[in-house]
Nucleic acid binder design. Structure first.
Length: 508
RNA sequence: GGCCCGUUCGUCUAAGGGUUAGGACACCACCCUUUCACGGUGGUGAUACGAGUUCGAAUCUCGUACGGGCUACCA
């Protein structure tokens, strides 16, 4: 009987959630759902100095927007809580002490100044950043160098101390990464990482192992930046819970910006968002733009994220969430980092806008237009407008410039496109069009076009020279859907009023 | 500096020893469209380099170069 699949996303609530983080969430979610497992969100808030108010709530908002709802989390509950590491504090010390008892770890009493001195003293050209490792530890103040009585005394006096792992010498730590295959590390080159900090909080290294065990995590997926510290985690599993219980690891490749690492801070300099949703940096007061507010559909967002480093082996690129769940496999995730291409991201969104039902976008677009000061009187009209312009929009926010003229008649006309060729014959033609349209019973694009062209023929005018003027009168500029489609949606009254106004502007 | 990971069109990628190295975005051309888009058709464009293994290498091995990550009492 195989264990139920349980995976976790473990962010530290220190700021906005960027593309890489969102993709880690996605892959965790897809893997869990594909295998009938649970997707857990655990908040890694063990660094009290980096706490950022609102960051946790923000993370859950992003997940909710993207449709990646956890099965267990501080917000959604679950049987393995608490899901915030700061609330799990008591259990970590016990495991750290267990390690010390088994001679896999030790107390270290070095002050920050001692550590700084060590780094200076042992710094050489060959080794610019000396580590607290097997070659150094016997020269420091810790329970390996101090005698037992002294250690006991220091502990009794509550002298500030940490617990460090005692990395073995001359061993090779190996594990199999689902994406990368076997990875090996020489333990001589790994430092004695701090497991328990002086404030009693665990570091990530201890916490991740203990909590993954306690929460029965079967597969651990995280960013590539964790690969270097994996040997520490593997060893802790071996010492504490047994390698046979260790989750299977997969280290996801990084998502890169146009020139290297995707910086969390200023997505603005790239000209595209890096966060899932708007994030207001409380310290700087700076608002960092998100994909949601930029006008991305959640369907498109997870689709493009999924394809950044994964594909199903076919040419298919557009996937619904359900299809992704069905087809996703961690083995097919690329091992190389992927440079993010905003143009392609917009293409994904365009494809989704085209596919998506008008009605399901109505409320978002209504809100968006209202924020721009557009008054929407009735939904049937809005629905027709959206249907007419949606294929021309890459972003939801494009709906404003593509459709605003439906809601307010032109205030300015692109007269340059029309006026030079304007003459009395055209003037008379449009007067006749107004009379004809006024009598029209069947206000349909096709009928209007037929009538328009018949009048042109009778007056011996070329329709081509008349349609642009009509467009300018209705729209104001040289853009938009078919001009008679516009007239149909606008309705008789509004169309005639716009032609009349346009005519006035032209003859001025 | 050390360790680890990576490297196919500009970008995302397919091809797990035998293909004219395929697709998508972007770009260009043409078509459609009496607007601008959408759309359609076609085109430019890649296996980082050097050895080796093999009848045969993008694919396996080694080296070099380049890129990235880590090298905190941060995650």
């Amino acid at each position: 009987m195989s264990k139920k699949v349980r995976v976790r996303f473990a962010p530290s609530p220190t700021g906005g959630l960027h593309l890489g983080g969102m993709r880690t969430v996605l892959y965790n979610y897809l893997f869990a759902k594909k295998n009938g497992g649970d997707f857990i969100v655990r908040i890694e808030d063990t660094d009290q100095t980096r706490f950022v108010a609102g960051a946790e709530e923000y993370i859950f908002n992003c997940l909710e927007w993207a449709g990646l709802t956890p099965d267990e989390s501080p917000l959604h509950g679950g049987a393995y809580g608490p899901y915030r590491q700061s609330e799990r504090k008591p259990s970590y010390r016990q495991y750290a002490e267990q390690l010390i008892k088994d001679d896999y770890a030790y107390y270290a009493f070095d002050t920050p100044e001692d550590l700084e001195k060590m780094r200076q003293d042992f710094k050489t050209e060959q080794n610019p950043s000396p580590q607290y490792d097997h070659s150094i530890r016997m020269k420091m103040r810790n329970s390996l160098t101090l005698d037992d009585a002294e250690v006991k005394k220091l502990l009794n006096e509550n002298v500030k101390h940490v617990v460090r792992i005692k990395m073995p010498t001359d061993e090779t730590v190996s594990f199999t990464d689902i994406i990368r295959g076997e990875v090996n590390f020489d333990t001589n080159l790994v430092d004695d990482k701090v497991l328990l900090k002086a404030d009693g909080m665990p570091t990530y290294h201890l916490a991740v192992v203990v909590d993954d065990y306690l929460m029965k995590i079967t597969h651990a997926f995280r960013g590539e930046e964790w690969l270097s510290s994996a040997p520490v985690h593997v060893l802790l599993w071996k010492y504490l819970f047994g390698l046979e219980n260790m989750p299977q690891w997969a280290h996801l490749p990084l998502i890169l910006g146009p020139n290297g690492k995707l910086s969390k801070r200023d997505g603005a300099k790239y000209g595209f968002p890096v966060f899932a949703m708007n994030w207001l940096d409380a310290k700087t007061g700076e608002l960092i733009e998100g994909f949601k507010e930029k006008g991305f559909l959640p369907e498109a967002f997870i689709n493009l994220l999924a394809l950044l480093g994964w594909n199903d082996g076919t040419d298919q690129e557009i996937f619904t969430k359900e299809e992704l769940v069905e087809k996703f496999s961690m083995e097919r995730v690329h091992s190389g980092g992927a440079k993010f291409d905003y143009e392609k991201a917009k293409w994904f969104n365009h494809e989704w806008i085209k596919r998506k039902e008008v009605r399901s976008m109505m409320s978002d677009i209504r809100l968006l237009l209202q924020e721009k000061g557009i008054v929407i009187e009735n939904d049937i009209f809005l629905e027709k407008v959206i249907a007419l312009v949606k294929d021309r929009c890459n972003l939801l926010t494009d709906f404003y410039e593509q459709s605003s003229f439906f809601f307010k008649s032109p205030e300015q006309y692109d007269l340059g496109a029309v006026k030079p060729k304007w003459n009395d014959a055209k003037q008379l033609f449009f007067a006749e069009v107004i009379r004809n349209f006024e009598l029209s019973i069947d206000w349909k694009a096709h009928t209007l076009e037929t009538n328009f062209k018949e009048i042109a023929a009778v007056n011996d005018l070329k329709p081509g020279e008349l349609m642009l003027p009509l467009r300018i009168m209705l729209v104001g500029g040289k853009f938009g859907p078919g001009v008679f489609d516009i007239a149909e949606v606008l309705g008789k009254k509004e169309t005639l009023s716009r032609i009349t106004n346009g005519l006035n502007a032209l003859t001025k």
